[in-house]
Write a protein that binds this DNA or RNA. Structure first.
Lengths: 145, 145
DNA sequence: CATCACGATTTGACTGTGTCAAAAGTAGGG
DNA sequence: CCCTACTTTTGACACAGTCAAATCGTGATG
């Protein structure tokens, strides 16, 4: 029983090849869209030989991603103009930089402590439980051109 | 030549019934989706009599919204899980509260000055030009239930 | 006031992204 | 080893938005 199997069982999920493959894919390529996760999984499967996971259905992929998100192993973000992107959920509270040109997403640590932007904690009865912060601009490569 | 006509011409856009109707609709109902804008425009047209703007094509609606956005009269936001929402662009720098239950969006003034969250101005060459902040939680009505 | 060029709008097909429901397959406790 | 509940597949479908080409209308000009 390897690490990922233990992790999944801890969270009350069965350890299946697809779930392990998706976790591997997200470790390898954070901020992937569902389609990109499928591609990474397919490539990894092909590289590992014909007996490995080579493809998973679209519905299966969304099921896996939703299951992993629900138990807190995966986090999803939806930058404007992009499909939903997924990343492994570590304990940290970080935000995202999105390049307007190439669309790439980078993590940026939360500068002001652990829950920085949660200041307006109660706005006229509104109960805030999360502050989502996205920085827009140009990445170094795209700015150079 | 009324106010809206003057406003549109200032921005280099022709003044058309559809564009004026969309601006009216967004003044009346901020944070509307494209479908909701179409509904408000249709209702306003019906109320004003058969000679008024009663409907505009889907493509026409998206064209109008994009044109208005491009010249800075309209701003769009895309909360996760929702279609794109539109609001009139005033000079202020405000953020949004989104209710997880009913999906309604409310404005919240930027608490920390004029460009508060733009702190990590240069992250390893990344040029930030905008910080987008969304607060998630429950609105007063949904929290009461 | 009439004309007309270019910007605005409609039309209809199409794409990407994600969801629903039901059938089939498989992990893992007993 | 077997059974049951959890996973996955299959195929149809829905929604939000886009593309391209034809038509229409605003408003500048004569």
């Amino acid at each position: 029983m390897d690490d990922l199997t233990a992790l999944l069982r801890e969270k009350g999920l069965r350890s299946t090849p697809h779930r392990r493959a998706v976790l591997h894919a997200l470790a390898d390529r954070p901020h992937s869209t569902a389609v990109e996760v499928a591609e990474v999984v397919a490539r990894a499967g092909a590289a590992a030989g014909p007996s490995a996971v080579s493809e998973l259905s679209r519905q299966g992929l969304y099921n896996v991603l939703e299951d992993l998100r629900r138990v807190g192993l995966v986090r999803s973000i939806e930058p404007a103009g992009s499909a939903t992107r997924f990343e492994l959920q570590h304990g940290d509270n970080h935000h995202h930089l999105v390049c307007r040109v190439c669309g790439r997403v980078r993590d940026v640590p939360c500068a002001v402590g652990s829950a920085p932007c949660l200041e307006p904690a109660h706005q006229e009865g509104f109960e805030i439980d999360e502050a989502e912060l996205v920085f827009w601009g140009r990445c170094a490569e795209c700015a150079a051109r």
